[in-house]
Amino acid sequence: MAGTVLAVGTMGVAAVLTVSLGAVGAAAVQAQRAAGAADAAALAAADAASGAATGIPCDRAAQLAEADGAALTACEVDGLVATVSVHLGFGALWATASARAGPPAVSAPG
């Protein structure tokens, strides 16, 4: 009888760990999807700001974020540099990511 209780308890713990690790893995995947959507949106906005692509920078960013299943929550364009934030739903939670794109900063020769 004691062996049965121990076996059932061990299987219960294994089931809880499996479900927990699966949820953590899914959350990590969603976070990476949000980061990818933010990167794409920032690049699209920077391209539009530089004239390499047509359209209004933040509108282009919103289109790219939406294509990746995310929603644009913030967009700021300063010259040729675009900074965006997106969020992506994950059940009752949200994965949020930000990205910045534009030409590299120019430093004075030293």
Rank of each mutant, 00 (worst) to 15 (best):
V8F: 01
A99E: 13
V5P: 10
A40K: 08
S107M: 07
S107H: 08
V29W: 02
T4Y: 11
A26T: 03
L88W: 02
A28Y: 00
F90T: 07
P103N: 09
E66N: 03
V81F: 13
D47V: 06
R60A: 07
G12S: 07
T96V: 15
G9V: 14
D39M: 01
V8Y: 02
S107E: 12
I56R: 15
T54H: 12
A41C: 01
L88P: 06
A65N: 11
L64A: 04
L21F: 11
A7E: 11
M1S: 00
V77L: 04
A34I: 09
V84Q: 03
C75A: 12
G25P: 10
S50N: 09
G25F: 07
D59P: 06
L17Y: 09
A105S: 14
I56C: 10
V16M: 08
L88Y: 06
P103V: 10
T96D: 14
G102P: 04
A40V: 09
L21M: 15
V24K: 00
A74T: 07
E66Q: 14
V19A: 14
Q63L: 15
T54A: 14
P57N: 05
T83M: 05
G3V: 14
G25T: 08
L88T: 02
H87Y: 04
L93K: 00
C58E: 00
V5S: 14
A15Q: 00
L72Q: 10
A108N: 10
G91Q: 04
G3A: 15
D39Q: 01
T83V: 09
V13N: 01
L6K: 11
